[in-house]
Write a protein that binds this DNA or RNA. Structure first.
Lengths: 247, 247
DNA sequence: CGGTCGTTTGATTACGATCAAACGAAGTGG
DNA sequence: CCACTTCGTTTGATCGTAATCAAACGACCG
């Protein structure tokens, strides 16, 4: 998969085409979009809460997360992006960032000017629709997370998060088979689902003793997908993969 | 305010102009958008999870909420819309609804065809930008709610919700002064913030004894706005009102 | 005037937080 | 290469917040 991202413009094209068919002219126009290539180390900030943003980035490799910090210093992770996704779609039309974006791992980015993307989005509706739809699906994921945190118990929350990652990686990367790398500490998992790291640890162990997953370091193997979905009350409908072109 | 919504097309125009300046041509084009006027009773569904959607509605009066139901039957309220807002912006480009939309009160709607809106959005970029931006701000509210539920305690969650309503009503309606109608049962408030109705009741009483709010039936008066914001860890930045035109 | 729905209050329970400590892996410097 | 540090994981013990259970009360409706 990685070699697909050797050319960032090709990666952008591939990303958009997952969301909407692009006619040859639109594809051709994308060839001339300017971008800046950048590698950021773990924990580096791509966007900082309260600052102006004029770019929109495509994640070529690695993972990034969005987060907010509350007054007592606790952090909520709002979303995690996997390679191949455009993040900062909201900053396309909003001037001041309302949260942080940081690197979960070292990451390679292709950084586009938001103005350039907006211009091309309205010049070629197919591109606009692709971008807009991608952002709407991100919104759908927020709604599911809200439901996960608000109305499911700790075990289900963790199981649900694992199921979601599995589906999203499966969709953007090539078949990941039964296992995948989850480059998050248990504290970060807790920040995703509104739990403490200690409790996340207990839930992971429980999923393990229930023979739903197996773990080795930071990688997770799915031992019983059906049962894991069941425990996590997971249904992939909200990812809207069925209306998208597979990777 | 209500009389502003006597003409739904004018209301649509007013809505969009809050998000982006519309040139005369765009405004003129909006005059010819077809719509259907409808009144729905309390609890009626405008959109049902899992069904196809081909419309997008403007709320003329009343309030609506979005919700998901988890496997054990518990409900999470994802968002509440106040008069003047377009809801179902996500269904503009997503075919199958991933959650329900129901009436919190009796509501008057102007229902537009999503195709008509998409067409005009790409014909007049200012309209497209307005719609897209409105949907991005809705997204920002989801992120704040995620943070609210995931990382704040019960008292702060309830205070935060009250602060948000106050700001949003102030922005779309004319000055609401120190009080406003909150047409939600305590159970529904609990479904917004991930608490039970019993606990919401205790938190409301606590906010009352702390002299931060006063209540009469379903209306809430703000007794100490500054202290309420403080308790709720509320900062209105995420609503992005400063980049919008006031109502 | 019952009947239903929502609010209020109290008593008890339980889930997940907090506190604390040991362990393990990765990285650093002598 | 091996102490030593640091960070994350693991486990146990205890605590506290919010859930649950239960019942009375109040408002609105037919």
């Amino acid at each position: 998969m990685a070699q697909h991202f050797a050319n960032p413009l090709e990666a952008l094209c591939e990303n958009l085409e997952r969301y909407e068919y692009l006619e040859p002219k639109a594809r051709a126009a994308l060839e001339h979009v300017r971008f800046e290539f950048r590698v950021l180390p773990v924990a580096a900030a791509a966007v900082t809460d309260g600052t102006a943003v004029s770019t929109c980035s495509l994640l070529l490799s690695g993972m990034v997360y969005r987060s907010k910090t509350v007054s007592n210093g606790e952090r909520q992770i709002l979303a995690v992006h996997v390679p191949g996704e455009l993040f900062d779609l909201q900053n396309l039309l909003i001037d001041i960032a309302d949260h942080d974006v940081r690197m979960l791992t070292e990451a390679k980015l292709a950084i586009f000017s938001r103005k350039a993307l907006i211009d091309i989005a309205f010049q070629f509706p197919s591109i606009g629709i692709a971008l807009w739809r991608e952002s709407l699906i991100e919104q759908s994921i927020y709604r599911e997370w809200l439901t996960n945190i608000g109305r499911r118990d700790a075990l289900a929350r963790v199981a649900h998060l694992i199921c979601e990652f599995c589906c999203r990686l499966e969709h953007t990367q090539y078949g990941i088979g039964h296992g995948f790398e989850l480059p998050m500490s248990q504290e970060q998992i807790g920040d995703c689902v509104g739990l403490t790291s200690v409790h996340v640890n207990r839930m992971l162990k429980r999923l393990e003793t229930m023979h739903l997953i197996a773990r080795t370091r930071r990688s997770i193997q799915i031992a019983d997908w059906h049962a894991l979905q069941d425990v996590g009350d997971f249904s992939p409908d909200y990812l809207h993969h069925s209306m998208l072109k597979a990777a």
